[in-house]
Design a protein around this nucleic acid. Sequence first.
RNA 1: GCCCUCGUAGCUCAGCUGGACAGAGCACCGGACUUCUAAUCCGAUGGUCGCAGGUUCGAAUCCUGCCGGGGGCACCA
Length: 557
Amino acid sequence: MTPEELSATIAVCIEEAIAAGEIALTNEDVVEVRVERPKVREHGDWATNVAMQLAKKAGMNPRAFAELVAARLLTVDGIEAADVAGPGFLNIRLSAGAAGELARSILHEGEDYGRGESFAGVHVNVEFVSANPTGPIHLGGTRWAAVGDSLSRLLEFHGAEVTREYYFNDHGVQVDRFAQSLLAAILGEDAPEDGYGGEYIQEIANRVLQDAMEAGEDDPLELPRAEAQEFFRARGVHLMFDQIKESLHDFGVDFDVYFHEDSLHKSGKVERALDQLKESGSLYESEGAWWLRSSEFGDEKDRVVIKSDGNAAYIAGDIAYIRDKRERGAQLCIFLLGADHHGYIARLKAGAAALGYNPDSVEVIIGQMVNLVKDGAPVRMSKRAGTVVTMEDLVDVVGVDAARYALTRSSADATLDVDLDLLASATNANPVFYVQYAHARSAGVARNAAEYGFSREDGFDASLLTHESEAALLGVLGEFPRIVAQAVDFREQHRVARYLERLASVFNQWYDRTRVTPQGDERITDLHRTRLWLNDATGQVLRNGLGLLGVSAPERM
RNA sequence: GCCCUCGUAGCUCAGCUGGACAGAGCACCGGACUUCUAAUCCGAUGGUCGCAGGUUCGAAUCCUGCCGGGGGCACCA
């Protein structure tokens, strides 16, 4: 019996009690029954506080309410005990057979175990990273790459059709500085004020020049300075972007759409969006500029959309961009932005509202910064000083799996401290290895069972799974779908990681206390075979969960 | 000044859509390998859940104020 089935069963019991006139409620009053794993094992396999939630409305003592439900539950097949405890908790113990069936249903569902339907058929646009091509992806961007991709995987697991999108701009002030820096580097000059430092600038500058010479082109350094700068901008940005894409790809993150900011302006999409806003009366003219009535949509003040010089302000592009995403079919637009962009939330939502969309169709996830820590002290990252840690640096030191896991196992709205020395030196203290090891272990057990010549298909008797550690393991296995659903609902991938650590832990405990394969000349029985089901089911869930984080599930370690 | 976010064990962090004695990993101390991977397991130590009020049968969780860390407040992009 899965927790979902148990939850439904309890709801039926309550409805029956209502029908029998024992509880003064209507079926509409019956909220979703949530069953949870009690923290204390002695309290049973599952517990619910539904009696305490409903008793007040029914004008009853919570314990009395729970007693009524318990009495009915006891008549249900597969429920061994139902006790009322404390102020009105209902503690439930399943029979071993009913609990053990879960192993079979998990393997039956396979890689679909844990899937949900909450986003079935919904087109979701997830935009993340979106760094301009002026340098390699740094630690912060790496975090969004890991988190954004994991959230996308979660949404897909719940039926969404996800577009992973990267928004970039290769013009503008920052890119000009990048181009100036390239030119300065190749000419042997100091990096310009507010320019970019670091070895990569020199490398890219050299590559641009080298590629041009090898292709037999005119020496760009012979050009007038402004033209030379443009030459280095165009070529340099291209090289930089290729490098970024390659880093992301090596990190396991590939985008469906690389959206060029310029295309909004060149295609007239900005103008069309602004025309729509003017027509709908969302814009007004004042002091020679056009303002969006964003304060009417929750922003703290109105924003200039068309500057008094006639040029579009930055926000105009954002508005046109939202409109474009919606017109491409996105029903929900999720933006992952760093904490330094939190001022965008109100503006983006106001933009969406002004366009006539539900502001809730724009969702901004603000992630906190990643701090680099060395010897216990924070290191200030600076592009100029060249103390930036890049995605490639991190992967070089700890590998893709450890990097992705470390960045996804924490909530995005908590600042994260990354100590490279610690990750590098104490890799076996990293939780990712604990989880991966558990998976490799389950794979090893399966291999051994095959060597002993027995397989799952030869027998299954769920009632044999009576060991205490088996009840614990089955309980955690059963939680997976709900954990996934919560992670999707709250857009919190870290819940999956924390769950996997718990699952690995109860699996290791089970492994330590019981055996799947026979010892000595012991005969192979259904107990061995049934435990193999449990072992394989655990491996399946670990694999499904790691997949949602974009972390590999090795067969051997 | 205003806004966002965080403040839980020595460290890194879970728990926060209210529930049963506050959790994990690391670090530290003590145990367990002739039998499926010891990258494991068992035990011990360790916390005024920033502070103060409030709501509630019940608050780490919700509300208010304060303190502290981080980030942000443009006709910049």
